[in-house]
Each structure stands twice: as C-alpha cells, then as structure tokens.
Nucleic acid binder design. Sequence first.
DNA 1: CGCGACGTTGATTTGCCTCAACGATTGTGG
DNA 2: CCACAATCGTTGAGGCAAATCAACGTCGCG
Lengths: 195, 195
Amino acid sequence: MYQSIIDHCYRYVTPTSKDLDFLISKLSKITVSKKKFLLEPGIHIREQYFVIKGCLRAFYVDDKGNHHTIQFAIEDWWVADFDTFYNDLPSKLYLEALEDSTLLAMSYKDMEQLYKEAPIFERYFRILLTGAFNSHRKRILSSLEKDTKDRYLEFCSSYSNIENRIPNYHIANYLGVSAESLSRIRTALKADTSE
Amino acid sequence: MYQSIIDHCYRYVTPTSKDLDFLISKLSKITVSKKKFLLEPGIHIREQYFVIKGCLRAFYVDDKGNHHTIQFAIEDWWVADFDTFYNDLPSKLYLEALEDSTLLAMSYKDMEQLYKEAPIFERYFRILLTGAFNSHRKRILSSLEKDTKDRYLEFCSSYSNIENRIPNYHIANYLGVSAESLSRIRTALKADTSE
DNA sequence: CGCGACGTTGATTTGCCTCAACGATTGTGG
DNA sequence: CCACAATCGTTGAGGCAAATCAACGTCGCG
C-alpha cells in the first residue's frame, strides 16, 4: 500500500523510519472510478495526490470550451492544481480519472505540519518542484525546436508505455495537435519501422 | 545600488535589516557589455543573477544550430541556468546581454549559506520558484490555446515595454514563429488600432 | 559615405486544421 | 445472443496560417 511512495522518497532523500511514519500519517487513501473528477473549477480543495495505481488527466477549459491537457499522471507521479495548492488561488483545473485509480492524498496543512516534524520532506518536495519546473522548460523547448513526430516520440518515452493505455485524442490534445494529425503520424511511424 | 533587490524582497517576504545585510554580503556586482555572454555551454558557473539595469536573453542551440530563446530578463528579474544552478548539471544555456547591463550575482554556495543565516530567503526563493513554475505552465497553455497574435500581446504585457527595447526577431524566436510572420502580425495590429 | 543590422513585403510551399465519411471494437439492452 | 449505439481510430478533400526564399527599404554607426 505505502511501498511505492516510500520507494519514491528513497530515490531523492534518505528518510528515517520515523520520518516515514510521519509521512504516512499525513496520507489518506482515495479511490476514483474511471471518468470521475477528482478536482473541478470552483471546488477549492488544497490537496496533492500521489498515484498508487491508475491514470489521471489534468486539463483546463478555455473560453471557447476547448480542453487543454497540461499533464497526465500515472503510477508514482504527484499531481495537484499548483495555483490552488501552493498559492491558495481559485481552482481552474479539472482532474479526471482515465482509469479506476488508487491515490494517496495530502492536504497543504498536513504538508506544512510534516515539514515541521520531518524537515527532510521539505527537501524532497523542493527537488520534485525543481524537477517539475525543468520538465516544463523542456516541454517549451520541445515545442520550439521539434516537429510533432519527435514530440510524440519524446512523450511516449517520458510516460512509459502510456500510448497503449489512453486514447489517441488525449495525447493529441496534450501535444497541441488534432487527433487526425496524430493518427497520420502514427501511421507513418509504423510504415517506417516495418520497412 | 541594492535598493531594487531590497524592494523586490519586500514584495514577497518581510526580512529584517539584519537579514538584508546577510543578503547583500552574498551579492557581487557584475557588469556585462552588449553582445557579451555571461554564460555559455561548457563553462560551469553555479550562479544566479538579479538584473539591476539592462536586458539579457537566455537561449539554447539545438543540433541543427537553431537558437531557441527560453527567457528574457530585464530589471528586477532573476535569471539562471536551472540545470546547473540547482542540479549541478553541465550547462547548455547561453546567457547574452542585449544591452550594457548591471547585475548582482549570487553563487549556489552563498545561497546555501544565506539559507542558514537568514532562513527567510529560503521562503523568498521558493516563492519565486513556484512563480516561475506557474509562468512556464501558463506559457505552455498559451501555446496550446492561443494564436500567435494573442501570444504576442500577452508577451508584451508580461515584459513591460520590452517590444521597444529588443529586436523583433528575438521576440519572434521566443514565440516560436518566424520574424516575417511576427512582422505581419505587428502590421495588422497597427492597422487595427488606427482604424 | 558605405556597410551591416533590422524590418517589411511578396510569392510559393507546406504542415496542419476542419469537416466529413467510414471501419473496427466494445458495451448494452431487449 | 443478437442488434444497435457509442467510442475511437483512420482516411480523404479542401482551406488556411505560417514557413521559406527572396528582394528591397531604412536606419545607425564606424
């Protein structure tokens, strides 16, 4: 149950077993069924989530009603509405389960409490934050320097095997192209590898 | 000399005068002439810079030799190579002065020392980091949901009056379009406002 | 003055979008 | 168990925004 998040912590810091006890005391298990929403605009929940099992999609909806996927979250990913979680701003993010999912939730208050009890997690979350910042920067760079085909391949390698778990059109949306375009790119890739 | 960074601190935290003395003791003044490079790939300098006066451009160069501008920095902006500064990775970033500039430099070691002497700055820099993270997310969203004209207008409002300070083609590069396209967009905007 | 840097404009090409139609697969109710 | 709808991916046709290539105007500086 908690093994995956413990392993995840060890990847970045070296907590004591007491530290880990504090961490676990701040986590509550949540399950979400496929197609249900964990977060929606207007519902102010200051929580972040660690994915034990399943798959989520974080997206915004603009004035014209178009969806824009900003992130997917699969096993071992943290996901949150950063505006709400860190800055206490009104939420504008949708967080939808694409599969039946099991998560661990942590509230902002509990995280602050955890920082006091076990400061090592301040370092843990700061490392995650700089990592997330760098991956955003990489995504901006990709959109500047790569064509859609290369960005699709990059996407597949950063989200292990995800292209077989979620619908094509969600990936297209994340990449900022139409589902039809991505379909053509996939077809061209298959032709390349089979030659 | 230090007034602008002191004001900047007060925008986010409330340091004591002793805190500010510690901060100032960690800063060293640097001047860079126009067209000179403050950072280049392969030169490992773990520093971040606060712009007192002037304008800088941070960019990467890809395999094909194309430039990709990731950030501009004008007065009151912090700028750094995050891979190098936070994660001690080899630098791949160019940091070029677009005008004769005056900066305050702080090394990573000095920042760690500062955190110990005046922990309030840990909060200060964490707020800046989440702010930078959010602005990257906004930029990704803009590229997904807005057309080039709207992204140009958004750019102009986020970098106050910068469109009159730096060449058109640098802005085009930042937006990921050709200089010719941006020129046409600018022409169309002028026509709109004069009608 | 002459050169380089920068912006503008035109012609052509290209990648992608939109609209539309059509399988293939899956789920569901009679 | 079958019929039907819903979901998702694929393919084609037409159009548009922006890239590319090229030429030219203007400004500032050595």
